[in-house]
Nucleic acid binder design. Structure first.
Lengths: 227, 227
DNA sequence: CGGGGGCTTGAGGCCACTCAACGATAGTGG
DNA sequence: CCACTATCGTTGAGTGGCCTCAAGCCCCCG
C-alpha cells in the first residue's frame, strides 16, 4: 500500500478560502495536491504533524489501535473536510484512504505562522477544533450509551446529512469500517441494517450493498433519541 | 438542588495566570467566585454559555443525557481544571458538582474580546480546546473498544495521575458516576474493582471505599494497552 | 431504632460477539 | 471464455460478558 504523491509538487498559491478557512484573503498559504490509493496510509499516529489535510475527493478514516489490533475509528473525512489539525506536535490518529482519494496538503507550520498575525485564521482554527470536539463528544454518548440499532441509525443520519441529504446515498466505507466507527462488529452492523430494511425504514435498491435509501426518516430519527 | 452563589460578587481583578491561561499578564479579566453544593447544577446542556469555569476546589462532572435518562459523563473536572470553554454559543454538556465545590467564573465574552487582541490568550484557548479534544479521542477508544476491566484500569491510572500521582487516592465520585463515565453499570465497576483487589493490584485500606491504593502499577498498566 | 444512600455480591437473562457457512461480485490468469 | 481467488456482505447457531434484578452489608443521620 503506497501513497501516490502526484509529481505536480509545484506549490500553487491559494487563498485560505480555498482551504476552507473562511474568508481571509491571505494568498500566502501554499498547497500541495496528493492522491492516495484505497487503503494507503496518509499519516501515522504519533508521527510529527507536518501537514494539515483537506479532502478534495474521496473519503478518509482516522483511527487509533490498541496493541492487540482492536481499532476505533474516530471520524470519517469526506469531501471538503479538513483533518490532521492539531496544536500539538504529533498526530493523534492514523489516517488512511477509504477510497482512492485526492487531498490538499498545507504545511502546519505555515498555518501557525499565519495565525499568529491573522486573527481571523486563528479564530477559524479554534472553531474547527471546537467542531471536532463536539463531534467527539457526541460520539462518546453513542459509544457509551446507545445500543447497536441506535448507533447504526445515528450513523445513517450523519452520513445522509454529510453525503447528500437527499435520503439516497452510496457509503464509501465497508461494514467493517462502520463497525469500527460505531464500536460494534461488522456482523452486528449488517444485522442492524437488515432489521432496518425489513422494517421498511431503508432499502438497498442499487446494485451495490453500499447504496442505501432512507424510506422513513421519521422512524429513523425516532431511533436516534439524542438529548 | 440549588447552587449557592457566594454573595461576594464583587469582581476581583485577576491575572489570566490565575485562571490557568498561561503567563499573559493581562489584569483585565474579572472573576467571580461561586460555591456549589454536592449534586447541584452548574450549567445546563444547550443553555447559553455565559461563563467559563475553573475548579478552585472540589470536583465536577460534565454529562449528556439521552431522552430516556441514559447518561454519559464526558469528563470529570478536578482542582485547577477549566471547563465550559466553547467557541459556540451554548454549552454542550450539563455540569454538576460531584462534591461541594468552589469555582471561579469568568464571562466568556470577556475572554473572547481579550483573545481578539491578545494572541497569547487566543493560542491558549486553542491549546486548551485541543487538550479537551485529545481526551475525548482517547475516551472514544476506551468506550468503543475496551472491556470492563481495561476501562476501570485506565480510569484508575487517569485518576491517580490527576489526583495525587502517589498511588494513594480518594476518589471524589461514586461508583455510579464512574460507571457513567466508562459506559458501564455501577455493578460492573464494583466487580472490576473487586477483581483488581483480589488480584493484589489494588487495596481499599481506608475506612472509605473511595480510598484506593495502587499496589502494583506494572500490572495495572499492562491492562491499559494503549496503542 | 428506622431509613436512606452507597457499595458489594449473587443469580439469571439478554444483547452483541464469535465462529462458521454461504452468496455475490470483481479481478486475474490460463 | 471459464476457473480460481479474494473481498465483501449476509445470515445462523452458540457463547460469553455485561446488564438486570435482588439481597444484604455498612455507615451516617434523624
Amino acid at each position: 500500500m503506497f501513497a501516490c504523491i502526484t509529481t505536480d509538487r509545484r506549490p500553487r498559491p491559494n487563498t485560505l478560502g480555498d482551504f476552507g478557512l473562511a474568508s481571509s484573503s491571505n494568498p500566502a498559504v501554499w498547497l500541495t495536491e496528493a492522491t492516495y490509493k484505497r487503503g494507503s496510509e496518509i499519516c501515522g499516529e504519533q508521527e510529527p504533524a507536518e501537514y494539515v489535510y483537506q479532502v478534495k475527493e474521496g473519503a478518509v478514516r482516522s483511527y487509533k489501535l490498541l496493541s492487540d489490533g482492536r481499532r476505533q475509528i474516530g471520524a470519517f473525512h469526506l469531501t471538503g473536510d479538513i483533518f490532521g489539525l492539531t496544536s500539538e506536535s504529533c498526530h493523534r490518529f492514523t489516517a488512511e484512504a477509504v477510497t482512492d482519494a485526492t487531498l490538499w496538503l498545507v504545511r502546519r507550520q505555515s498555518l501557525e505562522e499565519k495565525s499568529r498575525t491573522d486573527g481571523t485564521l486563528a479564530r477559524d482554527l479554534l472553531s474547527m477544533t471546537t467542531r471536532n470536539l463536539r463531534h467527539a463528544e457526541d460520539h462518546m454518548l453513542l459509544l457509551g450509551r446507545k445500543d447497536a440499532l441506535e448507533r447504526v441509525a445515528t450513523f445513517l443520519i450523519e452520513m445522509d446529512k454529510r453525503l447528500t441529504g437527499a435520503g439516497v446515498m452510496t457509503l464509501p466505507m465497508s461494514r467493517h469500517d462502520i463497525a469500527d466507527y460505531l464500536g460494534l462488529t461488522l456482523e452486528t452492523v449488517s444485522r442492524a441494517l437488515s432489521r432496518l430494511r425489513r422494517a421498511g425504514i431503508l432499502s438497498f435498491d442499487g446494485n451495490s450493498q453500499r447504496e442505501i435509501t432512507i424510506l422513513d426518516r421519521r422512524q429513523l430519527f425516532s431511533l436516534d433519541l439524542q438529548g
